[in-house]
């Protein structure tokens, strides 16, 4: 029982990342009808927003500290981050420590800008072209973005720690009545899961309860009619593209303490996220979220020692296996709408 709870918990954080990326992919596909292979790159750019912010915060200038001396008696040079000058030492250290959560504020405008530029500059010209062309051009864009990041940040993973307050683990088992130390779970992963649910809930609420969201949903159902009613649907769809990019970017920002960001993390997640979208059903937002969590949990179950002993290698292939079975038996995916990309 405790092992099962542990695996479900383990699956949730990876599932959250899948769900967030798949949600963005589905938003783009549902609104603009574009298959965006560069979505993994947006996830990666988000992660590097966190890296950038923590580098900006630790920008330092050198001062000579008269109170400390080296062994020759000369005054020591020390690096002082600019934030210390602005906010004082204690507050400055706290700000540096909280770089990753602060990066959320930094990433939202950056990602929306990246998304809008991408849509207006490139994707716009591909609405009328076949899906294969869209896949190819966004695939090319993903390579370009990845190489640009590699040029500026190098090829090695950059460790970006979570705030000290969230280091360590939470004894989940003890809290629900099991023996202590049976089910322990890092705090940051709990935060990640809560954050993901918050974002997903936010996106759904935005679409469901605002006028803007209502228009977008109407546009998803019948773009032409909404256009004929005198609503500038293109502009709203562009904004939705920005929001989808921001969702992927935030998923990346918060993922940095779990996995140190490197330039190819986007591609690694992209393939799996596409599988998630297809399993959930092309164009279905709840489907994408559901499939994301489902596949994350399944993957973590498959990596249990007991399961691997029975079917060796199952942890490596479970997601693809599930995708193949679902595509062959239920081509519309778990919750796919009728008529969306059915052949």
């Amino acid at each position: 029982m405790d092992a099962i709870i542990l695996q479900i918990l383990n699956g949730l954080d990876k599932g959250s990342a899948y769900a967030l990326i798949a949600l963005g992919l589905t938003l783009i596909f549902g609104t603009l009808g574009v298959v965006n292979f560069a979505h993994g790159a947006l996830f990666m750019i988000g992660a590097f927003c966190a890296v950038t912010l923590s580098r900006i915060l630790t920008l330092s200038h050198t001062v000579i500290d008269e109170t400390k001396t080296d062994f020759l008696g000369n005054p020591l040079k020390v690096d002082v981050p600019y934030v210390h000058d602005i906010f004082g030492i204690a507050a400055g250290n706290a700000i540096i420590d909280w770089a990753v959560p602060l990066a959320i504020l930094f990433a939202i405008p950056v990602m929306i800008l990246v998304g809008v530029v991408m849509e207006r500059g490139l994707i716009k010209h591909f609405y009328k072209r076949p899906h294969a062309d869209q896949i190819l051009v966004t695939f090319g864009l993903a390579i370009v973005l990845q190489e640009v990041i590699k040029y500026f940040y190098g090829a090695n993973p950059i460790p970006t720690p979570a705030p000290a307050a969230f280091k360590g683990s939470f004894d989940f088992g003890a809290a629900i009545g099991f023996d202590p130390n049976l089910i322990i779970y890092p705090y940051w992963r709990i935060i990640y899961f809560l954050f993901a649910t918050l974002i997903i809930g936010g996106v759904f609420a935005f679409l469901q309860f605002t006028t803007f969201g209502m228009v977008v949903r109407a546009g998803m159902a019948d773009r032409e009619t909404v256009g004929l009613l005198g609503i500038n649907i293109d502009k709203r769809f562009t904004i939705m593209f920005g929001i989808a990019a921001a969702v992927a970017g935030l998923a990346g920002v918060m993922y940095t303490p779990i996995n140190s960001p490197n330039y190819h993390m986007g591609m690694d997640f992209l393939v799996l996220s596409f599988v998630v979208v297809v399993v959930g059903g092309m164009g279905s937002l709840p489907g994408a979220v559901l499939a994301g969590f489902l596949l994350g949990v399944l993957e973590s179950f498959a990596s249990m020692r007991e399961v691997i002993d029975i079917i060796p290698g199952i942890n490596q292939i479970i997601i693809y296996l599930v995708a193949i079975i679902i595509l062959l038996t239920r081509p519309r995916g778990l919750m796919g709408r009728k008529g969306v990309m059915e052949d």
Partner: peptide, 10 residues
């Protein structure tokens, strides 16, 4: 279509 691409990829 895209489903074929994903299947071969998988």
């Amino acid at each position: 279509g895209i489903y074929f691409s994903i299947l071969t990829l998988a």
